[in-house]
């Protein structure tokens, strides 16, 4: 499996200059107040990992990878782990950038704020990945792309409605709002990580049946 993770990272390295260039521009825009820093982080994580799937599809890599020892399991494991490694690296880069810029601007560093922003961005990214991966493992990157984009639009639509409905229902229920406001710091990460883990098992199941 280590080999497959290395493969993903090596593929990203091949486009290093391009990624670095875009990342710097985005970060500059973000600190100029034109772009949301957590968006930059999520966007980069998702695009970079999605690109590895697209490159894999070029030479039918999946069929090759499956023919290697423990192929199917390793493909799924390595993609989830590559994602986490990528997120960690991006997290460090973006955090360092944030600290430098905020120090240059204000002379002080808002450590806690930066930490919160990165932490919640990472959770948001995990949610996007959690929905994206099973779709790709089931349908492949070509069909998957269409489904994922439709899902994102559909999800944002449903979430907006759900939030409205939920606010209407739960503002009257004090117990629920109290519970949420008390434990959200633990609840939100737990739910996100839970969804990420469930997504992994679904991917494993779907990919074990996939044919090439």
């Amino acid at each position: 499996m280590l080999g497959l993770i290395k493969k993903d990272l090596l593929m990203m390295k091949q486009n290093f200059k391009l990624y670095a260039f875009i990342l710097i521009i985005y970060l500059i825009l973000a600190f100029a107040g034109q772009m949301n820093i957590s968006f930059v982080f999520t966007f980069f994580s998702v695009v970079m990992i999605f690109n590895t799937f697209a490159y894999d599809a070029q030479n039918n890599w999946d069929a090759y990878a499956i023919s290697l020892p423990n192929g199917r399991k390793n493909v799924v494991n390595s993609k989830y782990l590559s994602t986490l490694i990528l997120m960690l690296v991006l997290c460090v880069i973006v955090t360092i950038f944030s600290i430098i810029i905020s120090y240059a601007n204000t002379g002080s560093v808002a450590f806690l704020e930066t930490f919160y922003i990165m932490f919640y961005s990472a959770l948001a990214t995990m949610i996007v990945i959690a929905f994206m991966f099973p779709v790709i493992f089931k349908f492949g990157v070509e069909k998957g792309r269409v489904i994922i984009f439709s899902l994102i639009f559909l999800a944002s639509f449903i979430i907006t409605i759900a939030l409205n409905v939920a606010t209407n229902i739960f503002t009257s229920s004090n117990v629920f709002t109290e519970f949420i406001s008390k434990y959200y710091a633990i609840l939100i990460p737990l739910v996100c990580i839970g969804i990420f883990i469930i997504s992994y098992f679904i991917s494993l199941k779907l990919y074990s049946k996939r044919e090439f």
Binding site: L2, G3, K6, K7, L10, Q14, Y55, D56, W61
Partner: peptide, 17 residues
Amino acid sequence: FPEIIQVKDIDTIMKGI
């Protein structure tokens, strides 16, 4: 392997497989 991989990378990858 994906087309973007370098020839020498195959060694690095396969060592881990």
